[in-house]
Design a binder for these strands. Structure first.
Lengths: 228, 228
DNA sequence: TGTTTTTTTAAGAAAATCTTAAGAATTTTA
DNA sequence: TAAAATTCTTAAGATTTTCTTAAAAAAACA
């Protein structure tokens, strides 16, 4: 998930970025409204955290503009000292707001909440959250995987990988890509992690892991779920 | 559900509209009492959000008029700076009111609360507020829980959690999500609260809490009521 | 075929999550 | 206001998952 943080105070900007990065989000930064608009045009942003008081109020107007065109959730920040009445009048269009100083945990919680809500009501996601390929069924509502009707218990990481692959059955994902999309981090993990997880998944969903029916390797390229 | 928002301040009007639209409500707008009356006559409105201070107090009088004829719930808005005692005197006829500035989440919560009440007493909604999964029955009308016919006494929080899960049996809820939906706050509870409640619920509804039949954990993801 | 690269596999250490219990704080009730 | 009930916090231990390592197997390539 990609988050744009917009604040003219460099320190706060950095601080927020660090919190979010630690949580696995990819963070884009901007120090004023125009920059923000540019970032949003050029990148796929899922959530915006925006300070209200920025040079010339630009940030606010930018936000309203954004909200008119794209349906990106916005969390507004305001200093406690600022006149709250005024802020309310201006706060328009935000999905949530926080006063500074804020608790980092609270920030994270609100971010998660917004992203959850966003994807929950069909933001981008396929409304049908049951993915299938032959006898393999991944039900994202109950977080349940079945093979030929038999339920298979997966761990969270295993589940996420399998869901990614099954939701895009037929498409090959490189290890890098799997890592990026499941761990939600850009930095590639130099170790063997993904391969090991793949193996574990095979152990659970394949009758004969040596000759996998569903989870295939495309040598030197990546893995995919066979489209059945 | 159709909601009429009435405020002479365009910005606030827009803001509230956006919040409500994002929540899936159909929003009608008016900037004064007369307009509001017209909208209500011509459309089926389920809830009104109305600012008190509008040109010439018209909004308020309009509201009272509306309330005399139709039984549409009204949420009043007032600026904190305004004299609250006075407002209370005038506020008659409202079902709820909020002071500005308000938290958007709070607004949504209040809206939902009002609509719930409205539909609860025979409005339009399906009166099916009995949720069941196997021997577990949550009757939201009598706020009663039974397991294999035996009544189980739950505390309010326990009840709310169990109702949420049972009403959505099969779906997995993360701890954050449970917190958010039961406490109606932007989730941010770094502590163990939810887990403890889950444990208490298990103690009451499960024969063997160690091997729960109904209330299952999905490791690393959350909890759910098994769909039986 | 021999060499290199990539994948598979197993095992154990490290990290994260869940369970549980007990007591403090808060809220409700009488 | 006191008592009771409920809710929240804390912390330790159990459990489960995740990651790393390293060696063996398989595939590609020359």
């Amino acid at each position: 998930m990609n988050i744009l943080v917009c604040d003219d105070d460099r320190e706060i900007l950095e601080a927020i970025s660090i919190y979010l990065t630690n949580e696995g989000y990819k963070v884009y930064k901007a120090t004023n409204g125009l920059e923000a608009l540019k970032v949003i045009e050029e990148n796929q942003i899922h959530l915006i955290i925006m300070d209200i008081m920025m040079p010339k109020m630009d940030g606010l107007r930018a936000t309203m503009k954004i909200r008119e065109e794209k349906n990106i959730p916005v969390i507004m920040l305001s200093a406690k000292s600022e006149d709250t009445d005024k802020i309310l009048g201006l706060n328009m269009g935000a999905d949530d707001y926080m006063t500074k100083p804020f608790n980092p945990l609270e920030l994270i919680a609100r971010v998660k909440s917004q992203l959850r809500r966003y994807t929950a009501l069909g933001g981008l996601q396929n409304k049908n959250n049951v993915f299938q390929s032959g006898g393999l069924v991944v039900d994202d509502e109950s977080k349940t995987v079945t093979v030929d009707g038999e339920e298979v218990k997966l761990t969270p990481v295993q589940y996420k990988i399998l869901k990614l692959l099954t939701a895009n059955a037929g498409r090959v994902f490189s290890i890098d890509e799997i890592y990026e999309r499941v761990w939600e981090e850009t930095a590639f993990n130099p170790e063997n992690t993904v391969a090991v997880h793949i193996r574990k998944i095979r152990e659970k969903i394949e009758i004969n892991p040596k000759e996998p029916k569903y989870l295939k390797v495309v040598w030197g390229i990546g893995y995919k779920i066979e489209k059945l």
